[in-house]
Amino acid sequence: AEKTGIVNVSSSLNVREGASTSSKVIGSLSGNTKVTIVGEEGAFYKIEYKGSHSYVAKEYIKDIKDE
């Protein structure tokens, strides 16, 4: 089941290729951006990003809701 969340950062949140802080950064999301969460892996959520799937750190996503 998909969930949505809100990016909870003051500046921007790195979007990564994989579920690791050493993964390549492929983009960023600004605070209060709504994201669609399709899964989770460790400390990361797998999200829909620009037509494919990428990862963001869970600690920076708030207001998780089931869609």
Rank of each mutant, 00 (worst) to 15 (best):
T33V: 09
S54V: 14
A1G: 13
T4N: 07
G31T: 13
S11I: 12
Y49G: 00
H53P: 06
V56W: 01
E2P: 15
I6D: 02
E67R: 10
D66W: 15
K50Y: 09
S10L: 12
E48Q: 11
I6A: 04
L29G: 00
I6E: 04
E48G: 04
G39C: 06
D66F: 14
E59W: 08
R16S: 06
S12P: 09
I37H: 00
K24D: 06
S11Q: 10
Y49P: 00
S11K: 11
S10E: 13
E48P: 04
A57F: 10
T21N: 14
S10A: 13
S12Q: 11
L13W: 03
S11P: 09
E40G: 03
S22A: 11
G27Q: 02
S28H: 14
V15A: 03
S28N: 09
I47C: 02
E17H: 06
I6T: 08
L13M: 06
R16I: 05
K58D: 00
I61Q: 01
S28V: 14
E40H: 05
S52P: 02
V56P: 00
Y49Q: 01
T4E: 07
K3P: 04
G27P: 01
L13V: 15
I61K: 00
E67I: 14
I47M: 01
K62D: 14
T33I: 08
V38T: 06
S54K: 10
K50T: 04
G18F: 14
V15N: 01
A1D: 09
Y45D: 00
T33N: 05
Y45K: 01
N8I: 13
S22H: 11
S28Q: 14
E2F: 15
A1K: 14
N14K: 13
S28C: 14
T21K: 12
V9E: 06
K65S: 13
K50W: 07
G39K: 03
E2A: 15
K3E: 03
G42I: 02
T21I: 13
V7C: 05
G5E: 03
V9A: 10
T33F: 06
N32S: 09
G5M: 06
I37M: 02
S12H: 13
E48K: 14
V9K: 10
Y49L: 03
S54H: 09
L13C: 15
G51W: 05
N32P: 05
V7F: 03
G18L: 11
V7H: 02
G18A: 13
G51I: 02
S10N: 10
K65M: 11
K24R: 13
T36N: 09
A19P: 15
N14D: 15
A43T: 08
G42W: 03
G31H: 15
E59D: 08
K34E: 07
G51S: 06
N14A: 15
G5K: 04
V38E: 03
G31C: 14
A43E: 14
V7L: 05
A1S: 13
V9Y: 07
I64D: 07
V9I: 11
A1L: 14
S12R: 14
K3C: 12
E41S: 09
V25F: 04
E40Q: 07
R16Q: 10
K46T: 05
Y60Q: 06
V35P: 01
D63F: 15
V9T: 13
S12I: 12
V38R: 05
S52W: 08
L29A: 02
Y49I: 03
S20P: 02
S30Y: 10
A57L: 15
G5Q: 03
Y49A: 00
S30F: 11
V7T: 07
K46F: 05
S23V: 02
N14Y: 11
G42F: 04
G31E: 08
V25M: 05
I6F: 09
S23D: 05
A19R: 03
I6C: 11
K65Q: 11
E48V: 15
E67H: 12
S28P: 02
K58E: 00
S10D: 11
K3Q: 07
V25R: 04
K24A: 10
T33W: 06
T33Y: 06
V9P: 08
S22E: 12
S12Y: 13
S12G: 12
K34G: 04
E17A: 12
K50L: 11
D66T: 13
K50V: 05
A1Y: 15
A57Y: 10
Y60C: 15
V35S: 00
G5C: 07
S23K: 03
F44R: 00
I37E: 00
D66K: 09
I37F: 00
V38G: 01
V9C: 15
G18V: 06
A19D: 02
N14H: 12
V7G: 03
A43F: 08
V15W: 01
N8E: 08
S23Q: 03
S23R: 03
V35Q: 00
S54C: 14
I61D: 01
I64C: 09
V56S: 00
A57R: 11
I47E: 00
Y60N: 07
E41C: 13
R16F: 15
V56M: 02
V35I: 09
E2V: 15
E40F: 05
D63H: 10
V38C: 08
Y45V: 03
D63Q: 13
T36K: 13
A1E: 09
G31W: 11
N14I: 14
G39W: 03
I61N: 01
A1W: 15
R16M: 15
K65A: 11
R16A: 03
K50F: 10
L29Y: 02
K50E: 11
K3Y: 09
Y55F: 11
H53L: 11
G31M: 12
N32T: 06
S11D: 13
K62M: 13
K3H: 08
G42S: 04
S23F: 06
I47N: 00
I64W: 09
I37S: 00
K24C: 07
T4R: 09
V56A: 04
E67F: 11
F44E: 00
E41K: 07
E17I: 10
G51K: 05
V38F: 06
I37R: 00
Y49E: 01
T4W: 13
V7K: 02
K46R: 10
E17V: 08
T36G: 04
T33D: 08
G27C: 05
Y55P: 00
H53G: 04
S20L: 06
L13N: 03
K24T: 07
G39Y: 03
G42T: 03
E67S: 13
G5P: 02
T21Q: 11
S10G: 11
V25G: 02
A19C: 06
K50D: 09
I26W: 02
Y60G: 11
T21R: 10
S22Y: 09
E59I: 13
I37L: 04
G31N: 15
V7N: 02
T36D: 04
V56Y: 01
S28R: 13
I26S: 04
G51N: 07
S22I: 08
V25A: 05
K62I: 15
I64V: 13
E41I: 09
V25P: 03
S20K: 06
G42H: 04
K46N: 02
H53R: 05
R16C: 08
N8R: 13
G51A: 05
T4M: 10
E67L: 13
N32H: 10
S20A: 07
H53I: 14
V56I: 08
K34P: 07
V38D: 01
